[in-house]
Amino acid sequence: MSDKEKGRAKAEQAKGKVKETAGRAVGNESMTAEGRAEKAKGDARQAKEKMKDVFKR
C-alpha cells in the first residue's frame, strides 16, 4: 500500500468516525449518516490498496 493512499484512507476513516460521533452526540441523523459514509469510503480505499499489494507480489 502506498504511503500516500494509506494516509488518505486513515484520514477518511478518522474524519468519518469524528463526524459520526458528533452527529450522534447532538442528535443529528444526517451528520451521523455522512460520518458513516465517509468511514466506509476510507474502508473501501484501504481494501483497494491492500488488494493492489496482494497482486504486486
Results as ranks from 00 to 15, higher is better:
M1A: 06
M1N: 05
M1C: 03
S2Q: 02
D3P: 00
D3N: 03
K4I: 06
K4E: 05
K4Q: 05
K4S: 01
E5G: 00
E5M: 03
E5Q: 03
E5H: 02
E5S: 02
K6D: 09
K6I: 05
K6Y: 08
K6N: 07
K6G: 02
G7P: 00
G7E: 02
G7T: 00
G7A: 05
R8A: 02
R8H: 04
R8F: 01
R8L: 04
A9P: 01
A9E: 03
A9C: 04
A9H: 03
K10G: 02
E12L: 12
E12D: 06
Q13D: 05
Q13E: 13
Q13N: 08
Q13A: 07
Q13R: 11
Q13G: 07
Q13Y: 06
A14H: 08
A14C: 05
A14T: 10
K15S: 09
G16E: 12
G16R: 10
K17F: 01
V18P: 07
V18F: 14
K19E: 15
T21K: 14
T21C: 04
T21Y: 08
T21D: 15
T21N: 12
A22T: 13
A22Y: 12
A22L: 15
A22K: 14
G23I: 11
G23D: 12
G23C: 12
G23A: 11
R24I: 06
R24E: 15
A25K: 15
A25M: 15
A25R: 14
A25N: 14
V26M: 12
V26Q: 11
G27S: 13
G27M: 14
G27A: 13
N28Y: 09
N28D: 15
E29G: 08
E29N: 08
S30M: 13
S30K: 15
M31Y: 12
M31D: 15
T32Y: 09
T32L: 08
T32G: 07
A33Q: 14
A33W: 05
A33Y: 07
E34K: 11
E34R: 09
G35H: 09
G35K: 08
R36K: 13
R36I: 09
A37P: 01
E38F: 10
E38Y: 08
E38K: 14
E38D: 15
K39P: 04
K39I: 03
A40K: 13
A40E: 12
K41W: 01
K41A: 11
G42H: 03
D43G: 00
D43Q: 08
D43K: 07
A44R: 08
A44P: 03
A44M: 06
A44D: 08
R45H: 00
R45M: 00
Q46S: 10
Q46D: 11
Q46P: 01
A47I: 02
A47P: 03
A47K: 12
K48G: 01
K48A: 08
K48Y: 04
K48S: 06
K48R: 10
E49N: 00
E49P: 03
K50M: 09
K50H: 07
M51P: 00
M51A: 12
K52I: 07
K52A: 08
D53L: 10
V54M: 10
F55E: 09
F55C: 03
F55L: 11
K56W: 04
K56Y: 06
K56G: 06
K56R: 13
R57V: 10
